[in-house]
Each structure stands twice: as structure tokens, then as C-alpha cells.
Nucleic acid binder design. Sequence first.
DNA 1: TCGATTGTTCTAGATATATCGAACATTTGA
DNA 2: TCAAATGTTCGATATATCTAGAACAATCGA
Lengths: 103, 103
Amino acid sequence: MRSPNHPDAAEISLSQVLHALSDPIRLRLVRCLSDAGVEQQCGALYDSMSKSTLSHHFKVLREAGVIFSRPEGTRFMNSLRREDLDARFPGLLDSVLKANEPL
Amino acid sequence: MRSPNHPDAAEISLSQVLHALSDPIRLRLVRCLSDAGVEQQCGALYDSMSKSTLSHHFKVLREAGVIFSRPEGTRFMNSLRREDLDARFPGLLDSVLKANEPL
DNA sequence: TCGATTGTTCTAGATATATCGAACATTTGA
DNA sequence: TCAAATGTTCGATATATCTAGAACAATCGA
């Protein structure tokens, strides 16, 4: 496993970020990463979903610049790119994470 | 032309709003409505696009709860549901509108 | 009443996305 | 060296979305 590609902080696209966060499953993944506060491995964040589907969602989040994935052994450790996102789109991540979704 | 359906303020879905805003064309429409500050008719906001496509995008924004459409004569006057969005997801709209998109 | 204006709805085609299983790649540990 | 663990990538299918043209509906003005 090679290191995956991540966009530079300055290249993070608003549309891509909004699209990445617009999927309920991905939003849940992001919330988990935010709540945990520390790196999390992919498989720890969701069950009831195939590996490939989970991997797909992580890829979308990664390529949008929302998360950072670091290989460690056989696993991938994921973290929220909070500083990059806050610098690029101030207040966006906070407002999304604070939103109480009654659904 | 009857009055279109709008979701109640409390029923506005985060995922739907994020999805509605994730399209560059719709984001531009929302920016236009925000910049104008007053109601705008649909056709005034975009050229180089078919009526039906424009209507589709307005429908997505309307059903997501992002805009309010009011029939007036043969036209529809559209406005941003700023208060409802701010109440439901504080800071979200501001952060999106303030984001400077170099693309 | 009739035509122009404005936007919607219907239909269709092209593209994108979500999902999964199977095969593959990399690293760790026995 | 081999098997287990963890994700990725590929192939396929189902669903959603974007786009546009054509037909339709409602309103206004002449």
C-alpha cells in the first residue's frame, strides 16, 4: 500500500467538500473522526457495510481534502483535516458538525 | 402555476442542503440571490442554460429548503431562506457564501 | 380573446454515484 | 516462508443526477 494522494490545502474545492459531506454515511464517518479526536482506522468506523463500499467513501473524503489517511502497517489511520479546512473555509466544518440532525 | 412546495424550517435536512449547495451552478444561483438581497426572478439569474435545466436547479434548491419561490404574475420571485437556514444550521450559509473560490 | 411571457412537467439520453463481491497488494507475525 | 489482517482496485449492476427539447399551464396586456 502506497501513500494515497491528498489535495494541497489551497486546492481544496468547496463543491467537492460539500458533496463529500452531503452523503449521510460520509457525514457520519466525519463525525466519528471529529468525536474521536485522534486517528482512527477505517474498519473501526463502520460495520454493516462492505469493505469496498467503505473504502469508496473514504476515498471520496480523502480526495475532497476532508480527511488525511496515513498508512501504518496493514492499516490506514485517518484524521480530519480540521486546520486545513478551517483555513480554507472558516466556520464551515464547525457549522456542519454542530448541526443537530433529528433524522 | 400553483405555489410550489417548501419544507418547513424544522424539516430542512443537512444532507439535502449540502447536496443542493455542492453543485457549482446552484451555488452561483445562491450567491446571486444573496448578493442581490431582494427577490429575483429565475430567468434573471442565468443565461446559457435551457429553461428546463434552470428550473430543475431551482427545484432542487427549493425542495432542500435553501430558497423560497413566490409566484407573481407569470414569474416566480426567489429569495434565500436565510433566517430559516441560520436558525437550523447556524453559520453554515455564511461560511459557504464567504468562501472565496479561486476556481 | 389571443398572443407573449415565464416557468413547470414530461421524456429521453448521458454521465455520475452507491453498492457489492472477487481479486490483488502490502505489511505484520508466527 | 506463509498465513492473517487491512484496504485498494476492478467489474458489474442499480440508482440518481444533469441536461435539453417539447408540450403544457398560468398570467398579463393589447
